[in-house]
């Protein structure tokens, strides 16, 4: 009897302890959600170099995986953090070429204010004399697309064309830079070539999104013109294109851009609803 009582007490005691343990963990979870954590990447590259036992390329690889996670989860970190992480990757492992190219192509798309930082990273990559044609190609494209800087765009397109191992299609696009009739046509050529040559899904998808965005804009502009031809005036609202039966729906933009019209045949853009 005494033994059974002891056993019950012991069971209750351990159950109580487990309940307390779960409650503590639960409380910790809510606390942990609010406490800041210091990511490894916040440490400057020189500090990482001193502390990594010479495993520079391995630490750079881990930082690169961190960048990839932040980019794939998009806005999991600020673009400034992504930029500084890639900076650290390239300082720890200067011969690791793809981060230079990736930075200059992707970062300005996330945040225009980081364009110069991205250009600085890629310029260092070109100065390292790496034989990765993507660095000068994406750098030249960024000068063309985001900064409208033809002189630098031409400079890096020439470097691309002279880089050993550049694919024939890219070489042709680089050498023909400036021969397109419109900036629009040139932009499409670039995104198409980036899409066709990309070996990773994130860059390929980004190029595809840009091509889709261009298709949508072109389609809406054509629809506005058709509306005018049928009704004699441009629609007052973008929704009129649907009510008039010209479009079945307003296409969804891959970047979440909302389209409107000013009533004079021009499209206006805004982010979100």
């Amino acid at each position: 009897m005494q033994l059974a009582q002891n056993s019950t007490l012991r069971t209750i005691f351990f159950l109580g302890l487990f309940v307390c343990l779960i409650a503590t963990q639960y409380t910790y979870e809510s606390y942990a959600a609010h406490r800041g954590v210091l990511p490894l990447s916040n440490l400057p590259a020189p500090v990482l170099k001193v502390t990594d036992l010479g495993l520079n390329s391995a630490v750079a690889s881990l930082l690169w995986l961190n960048v990839v996670q932040n980019v794939v989860l998009y806005f999991g970190a600020s673009s400034a953090t992504i930029s500084s992480d890639i900076n650290a990757v390239t300082q720890l492992d200067p011969k690791f070429s793809y981060p230079y190219a990736f930075a200059v192509l992707m970062i300005p798309g996330f945040d225009r204010s980081q364009t110069q930082a991205a250009i600085d990273i890629a310029t260092r990559g070109v100065d390292e004399h790496l034989t990765d044609w993507r660095i000068p190609y994406y750098l030249g494209f960024t000068y063309f697309f985001y900064l409208k800087d033809n002189a630098n765009a031409i400079k890096y397109m020439h470097i691309t064309a002279e880089t050993p191992g550049v694919p024939a299609g890219i070489k042709v696009t680089a050498l023909n830079y400036g021969l397109s009739k419109t900036m629009h046509e040139q932009t499409r050529q670039f995104w198409q070539s980036i899409h066709d040559s990309a070996t990773d899904d994130v860059v390929r998808q980004n190029a595809q999104d840009n091509l889709d965005h261009m298709d949508i804009v072109e389609g809406l502009q054509a629809a506005l013109e058709l509306y005018k031809r049928i009704h004699g005036a441009y629609p007052k609202a973008i929704g009129d294109l649907v009510t008039s039966g010209i479009l079945t729906s307003i296409p969804e933009d891959p970047f979440g851009i909302t389209f409107a019209t000013d009533g004079e045949g021009h499209l206006t853009f805004s982010l979100g609803q």
Binding site: S61, V68, F96, Y98
Partner: peptide
């Protein structure tokens, strides 16, 4: 596999 086509570099360095 989650390194954006830099598999070999990651595998060798790590």
């Amino acid at each position: 596999s989650i390194s954006l086509d830099e598999d070999l570099h990651i595998v060798r360095s790590l």
